[in-house]
Design a protein around this nucleic acid. Sequence first.
DNA 1: TAGGCCATCTGGTCCT
DNA 2: AGGACCAGATGGCCTA
Length: 204
Amino acid sequence: MSEALCARTDLRPKREARTHRQVSDRIAVNTAGGVCCEKLSQNLLTVVRRKASAMENVKHVVTCTKSGQRGRRRLKANDRERHRMRNLNSALDVLRSILPAMPEDAKLTKIETLRFAHNYIWALTATLRLTDHHGLTPEYPPVKCDLRRPTSVSSGEEDQASPADSCVSSADFEISAHEINCKVSARPQPCVMPVTFYFNSFCD
DNA sequence: TAGGCCATCTGGTCCT
DNA sequence: AGGACCAGATGGCCTA
């Protein structure tokens, strides 16, 4: 118990750490999004360095405070946990990067990323099924696929996997004979994603 | 200012 | 014993 209280006290420098982390996050996001870090001003970079230095100091202080076998184990476990969560976030970033592009600064939250990926996979699967059933002819009528009501594109077939009900980033897929356009209702504003699949590439 | 999102710490549990 | 995983608690930042 006393250890827990002590640990809470250790959190006091968190504000500093948080600031540093968020600045770092922005760099990471920008890099992942293909936007060069050049956008960051020199001042900001200086801030990053200062904060990083401060973080090292905080780390040192905490490490010194946590003496003893138990304390060392806990610190080690914390470090592993941070690493684990970073890996998890990296995986989420990879997932974001392969999802249809979103407007700049419209980074999906974790839950949105998972739900959108789920819906996206569902839509692609539905598209494949659609082409299997109807073939690919120029006369093929344009079909509007509302991911929230998947039965509208299944041609009477039972749906296998419907998108998440509470999808924040809902999407309407307009499927024509040659392409799919996806209209996304996402923060901060709706957009038409550049998702175009040319059906010709599916058949030879 | 309330609510959402997030990182971090922490203790518990399971597995090797 | 130690690592991985998980969920609850906490507090900071941001936005409507």
